[in-house]
């Protein structure tokens, strides 16, 4: 029985963290090795041109400041999702209707920010002494002060958001058609993690002192399974988290790193201001007409052909 705890409590977490870090760095280096010879930003506004034509600095950035502004808004508030539209065939009016669909943005926003806050809250189990910002965040998250243990707002929000993101894929025929295994797997895995955590907090309760003992042991590279033992619910939660970490670099979840390396977002649209030379251009051996004429001047003269230079 001890060996099982050793595998699920220590070996799998180390392996998952190793795969996560090395895999992510490998993916980033691979992306950085692909040349991006041309400027291919997606432009959604007036390009900078003449001084009296008003340009959009963020929709069509022409310098680094614009790109940083655009990337920051993309990474922090998922601005491009606000452009999401949906197409519907309206039976009543027999017309194809295009309309704004901001729910995807809302679901993504709520999910990602809840995940970040939940992740930061978990620091209380990973570091000693607990930093003040973790305590403040926890107080803010448990603002309602209802239930015992305190109900966290993000716990509710993340389940609602993930539930919506899952149902969204299943409800519409078009979206269901393009959804693949990996799309469902990521959402279901995250939902499993959130629900196992909530169940552990309210129903299958575990001894947190032992949990922290294990976590500190693993993080200080002196791992040991706490003598008091930890409930099964903890190992379920931990295993799902490890699965997520190990799966991360191989899946679409790498958009965490990939968003920073998207050429359609991180390039300034300055093709008309600067010349960008293709990095894989090599010096081509050329033979100009002048050189050619010099080489055959005598023969051409004899044959009576016209020459550019006598």
């Amino acid at each position: 029985m001890n060996a099982v705890y050793l595998v699920f409590g220590i070996i799998i977490p180390y392996a998952a963290l190793f795969i996560f870090v090395v895999g992510l760095v490998y993916r980033i280096v691979r992306w950085a090795s692909s040349p991006v010879p041309f400027r291919i930003p997606t432009t959604c506004g007036q390009q900078k041109s003449l001084p009296w034509i008003k340009s959009k600095k963020i929709e069509n950035p022409y310098n680094n400041a614009g790109v940083i502004g655009r990337m920051a808004l993309e990474v922090l508030v998922f601005r491009s999702l606000l452009r999401n539209t949906k197409t519907e065939l309206r039976r009543g009016i027999q017309k194809l209707v295009y309309k704004d669909s901001k729910l995807l943005w809302l679901g993504a926003f709520v999910f990602h920010w809840s995940l970040l806050i939940i992740l930061l809250r978990h620091l209380r189990l990973f570091v000693e002494p607990v930093p003040a910002f973790v305590i403040s965040l926890q107080r803010l998250d448990g603002l309602f002060q209802i239930m015992l243990p305190t109900l966290y707002i993000t716990d509710i929000l993340i389940v609602l958001a993930l539930g919506y993101l899952l149902l969204r894929r299943m409800a519409g025929a078009q979206l269901r058609y393009i959804s693949l295994f990996s799309d469902y797997f990521a959402v279901l895995l995250l939902l499993g993690i959130a629900l196992s955590g909530i169940f552990m907090r309210y129903i299958f309760r575990v001894d947190l002192v032992s949990v922290k003992e294990l976590a500190l042991g693993v993080l200080s590279f002196h791992p040991s399974i706490p003598a008091a033992g930890i409930g099964l619910a903890f190992y379920v939660h931990l295993f799902l988290v490890c699965t997520l970490f190990a799966y991360f670099p191989f899946s679409k979840l790498v958009h965490m790193a990939g968003v920073f390396l998207s050429p359609t977002r991180n390039l300034a649209n300055n093709s008309r201001m600067r010349r960008h030379i293709n990095p894989w251009n090599y010096p081509v051996k050329v033979h100009t007409y002048q050189e050619w004429e010099d080489e055959f001047r005598e023969h051409m003269k004899d044959a009576g052909l016209p020459l550019e230079k006598e």
Binding site: V21, V25, L123, F126, P129, V209, S220
Partner: peptide, 26 residues
Amino acid sequence: GIVIFLILITFPIWYLTAHSQTSHVP
């Protein structure tokens, strides 16, 4: 970027090392 990522992800490790509280138990 990679260095920033590694510093953030290893935050608990160097925070623990700085405070040397790894074996603290209530």
